[in-house]
Design a binder for these strands. Structure first.
Lengths: 144, 144
DNA sequence: GGATGTTAGATGCAGTTGCATCGAGTTATG
DNA sequence: CATAACTCGATGCAACTGCATCTAACATCC
């Protein structure tokens, strides 16, 4: 009789939790040290920047970011308050809205990227060769 | 001129964030569905069970779990209130205390493991071969 | 031994997250 | 068209997290 999750699976799970926590705390600390907003702001701004002129419906952004609905609702509020996005009424569906990044939002995203990218390099790039990073990315993709 | 974090590094970072979020949400959902406490309870109970009769000082547990100090302080409070651990005065250092798992704590950990292990299998084991899981664990270990 | 610095752990407060639920609008069914 | 079922997004409330700070107890240095 074989144990359900084998040793390697458990090791991978533990590694995933720990590595993510370590890397994330480095990245969040760097952002905070520069007085920049948290990572979730970046993710949202980036998705909206990629979406361009059309913007995104909250539920689309929610899925792209793997965010809970209530969570995104509040994130959007804060981003709008900060002037980084606009919430526009949606023509096609009177319940809904369309989120669009503002110029200030694009600038903030760019500014965050300077710090963010350095932190990624520190937390991941410096610890893996390019081929290791590629392998890791591929293995992680299988978990989604 | 080469871009600072290369493409593979960024892909690994994104994969890490997403995979962890997906896997974690599966696991937490399974625990919640069974009316069991959150994962952090399991981690603490497991560390204390491994520590055995000697128990652990809060700051030791804190480091083992990669938890913030204030965070662990409150987790220990809740575990103690639930009767899963005991907080004993520390002989060697009057400021400190020693945390020890109780019998109820051991039982809870075992009970959580039944659900937890199935969830790990579902979120990780089912998506990777054994050798892939081994590779993944090894790559992730380099990030700590 | 006494001043100074450091470490262990707790806690008040503000911000964030999770959960449940709501209200408004849309779609499906008859 | 009426009603039932569902989707979109917001929100009250409770739990949790992060930050700063506090108290008490070592440790160090003279």
């Amino acid at each position: 009789m074989k144990s359900k999750p084998d040793q390697a699976t458990v090791a991978a799970w533990i590694g995933l939790s720990r590595a993510q926590r370590v890397a994330m705390s480095v990245v969040e600390a760097r952002l905070k040290a520069e007085g920049l907003p948290a990572l979730s702001w970046y993710d949202a701004l980036w998705e909206l920047e990629k979406a361009g002129e059309a913007g995104l419906r909250p539920y689309e952004l929610e899925r792209a970011m793997l965010f809970e609905q209530y969570n995104l609702s509040r994130l959007a509020q804060r981003l709008a308050e900060a002037g980084l996005i606009n919430k526009e009424a949606c023509e096609a569906d009177a319940r809904g809205q369309t989120l669009k990044i503002t110029q200030a939002g694009r600038e903030m995203r760019r500014r965050m990227w300077e710090t963010y990218s350095r932190a990624i390099e520190e937390a991941v790039g410096a610890k893996l060769s390019v081929s290791e990073a590629r392998s890791l990315a591929e293995l992680l993709r299988k978990l989604e």
